[in-house]
Design a protein around this nucleic acid. Structure first.
Lengths: 388, 388
DNA sequence: TTGTACGCGTTATCAG
DNA sequence: CTGATAACGCGTACAA
């Protein structure tokens, strides 16, 4: 039974919330609030409460100082006597104090966390970007929270909401192929949360963007094929609602036109290139009556799929068919013959994006909405070079 | 200029903290605190402050109800009249209310976030584990925060501290090769935070572990070589402070013994296999007077490095040298000849680990400290099969 | 140099 | 069904 510590009565005692993990009681008769030692509280009541983790207040109490003093000591603020400071630090260690970042975040309204939303994980591209970004952010004392939209606009929206709810200090995002509306991103501008688009960017909103020079890269790739004597170059492209796909298509066309090649409609296929789709499209291209003598694919997986199919059909690479991919996946170096491809600076893209967001997070100024364009590199291997 | 709303003076006005995102002032002469409409505040003052984000209290105010009512309505709690509920929802949408997860986390002492610490990102192994874990956790409504210890014990410690400070609901960790002390992990047990070790586990602490059957896998790999007529099998192993390395070494030895082969000291090299180290060790093995006729490497990158070196030296694979790797990296399928290797179920490992931690997070019970062992698969390709 | 008193945004308990 | 208010843990402006 609980007795009022003031009037000693047992009747008229009621629970009245919790104080620092301990049950608080109210003595109705004498209108007095009090808490009592934990061992006096019934086990049931006690157990419902989570184990109390030592806080700044515990340190203050055991030391007989105020919590602000403890806070200042812990953060090395000025105007603290060395003795109290040391005493605080000692008891903090003694009590195994671990700061509660959650409380810190709440009061500071910032989380030291950068959010990153990527559409997929299956190509090595995004993992590599993550490596780069992670490295930079970690060095700067930031955490990185990664979400994956799985190429779904709806998931992307819920991801951005979660990022907002979690109060990330900045957001790095690469859009899904379905994303055509950008209201969910404009919220960030309104909230003053820096936002950077990378790789899968769009033109419709005016925010910082980090990309590679897709147009020039595609141009370079196709020009390379044409200079190696291939005549009928087909293009296996990505979905056209992605700017990267449109840019690469534009590069393909520009190169073809420069060298006076006509662009046949049936030699250009655009779409989401799952492995299955790559096979279907490849089948179609390789079985055409007027078969292309070269294929520029929008990514390496598709290009390799083409190479494997060609091998099955007895089409020789590079003699009968030249192939160029995009991204320089690890396997492209090892397949025989090696796959000529465009190397993207993936880790650099992650680093650049991360460095940029850190600048934006720190400045109060409205960011300049420029666009950072990273350079790619044509890696020539056996799949596209033949004796003329 | 700011005027005191009471005495109208301009002199002696000073800033005195913030009230709900609005600057609060103190009129020194009449000792009166006040805030004023945002539009009256000078632009400079206003801009320094982040824009006030609409909270539950704003909704309550505009609706003339209490914040508890709003909270209940938002969460679909019982005992709410449909009208108030709808009204709350409407104004929430109107004011573009976004819940503050930070505050929620603080009061609930849980974050709906699982932490994951991995030693490195450069092999596709950990990214793949992440894919699997991410998928499961996302479906369950959890976030995943990833940190990277970069094979450094010190970084691992600071990572675990950060995880603790951020109050993750559970932790998945794969140890660095330097980790020999486990105090930083025992803290989690004390705090009641579930912890699972995966892949890079240790024997010293008693927590749930998820691994593959390294011993049997290595045994299988070496037995495969011996059955294919190779006689002098060398082993290029990982650092011996990792249990996985020791287990694989044990498997190698067991297979050799089973087939009556002696284990030569100079045919076994253990160490951290960076690309450079792999080359150095490979050079040594391939230049031995009594050169091994097969090599079982602890990972695919090292195995491939060996293959490239052999090619340079004119050593034919698989005729003069059999090679088996471990992990089945993508490139292993495409190199010529294909690399025989042990496929690890990486995504499954991520999934299994994530599913397990979800169970542990939800139960109050002390977890059973079992060990989950996932099965690997021997993938036979050209690098280890020769005509006898 | 230190203590006091809020505020951060939310949930939960208890009283009406 | 609704309102008041303590609590979560910490930072900090101001007073002492």
């Amino acid at each position: 039974m609980i007795k009022c510590v003031k009037c000693g009565q047992v009747e008229g005692i009621m629970k009245a919330g919790y104080v620092r993990g301990k049950q608080r009681f109210l003595c109705k008769p004498c209108n007095y609030y009090f808490t009592i030692q934990e061992k006096d509280v019934s086990a049931a009541v006690q157990q419902k409460r989570r184990r109390h983790q030592t806080t700044i207040i515990d340190i203050a109490k055991t030391l007989g100082v105020s919590n602000s003093t403890v806070s200042r000591a812990l953060h090395g603020h000025a105007d603290i006597s060395p003795e109290t400071r040391q005493a605080v630090l000692d008891t903090a260690a003694l009590l195994d104090y671990q700061p509660n970042q959650l409380a810190y975040n709440l009061v500071k309204s910032r989380t030291n966390t950068i959010g990153m939303i990527v559409p997929e994980f299956h190509n090595p591209f995004f993992p590599n970007v993550i490596i780069g970004a992670h490295e930079v952010l970690t060095k700067a004392g930031y955490n990185l929270t990664i979400m994956q939209s799985n190429e779904s606009y709806q998931v992307e929206i819920s991801n951005t909401k979660a990022m907002l709810a979690n109060r990330v200090d900045g957001l790095l995002i690469s859009l899904t192929q379905e994303t055509n509306n950008f209201d969910h991103l404009e919220v960030f501008e309104k909230r003053g949360i820096p936002l950077i688009l990378f790789n899968r960017v769009c033109e419709q909103i005016d925010v910082p963007k980090v990309v590679v020079n897709d147009f020039e890269s595609a141009f370079m790739a196709v020009e390379h094929l044409l200079l190696n004597g291939y005549e009928k170059v087909a293009h296996l492209g990505g979905p056209l609602n992605l700017l990267v796909s449109r840019e690469r298509l534009r590069g393909y066309k520009a190169a073809m036109e420069k060298y006076g090649k006509s662009i046949e409609d049936h030699m250009v296929i655009q779409g989401m290139l799952t492995q299955q789709k790559a096979r279907i499209y490849g089948q179609y291209l390789l079985d055409l009556a007027e078969r292309p003598d070269a294929i520029f694919a929008v990514n390496d997986s598709a290009a390799i799929e083409i190479m494997l199919m060609a091998r099955e059909k007895g089409i020789r690479i590079p003699e009968d068919l030249g192939v160029v991919g995009f991204s320089d996946n690890p396997e492209s170096a090892y397949i025989g013959p090696g796959l000529t491809t465009i190397r993207q600076p993936t880790m650099e893209m992650g680093q650049a994006t991360a460095e940029w967001i850190l600048e934006l997070v720190d400045t109060e100024e409205i960011p300049v909405h420029e666009r950072k364009i990273l350079k790619t590199e044509l890696i020539v291997r056996g799949s596209s070079v033949r004796e003329r």
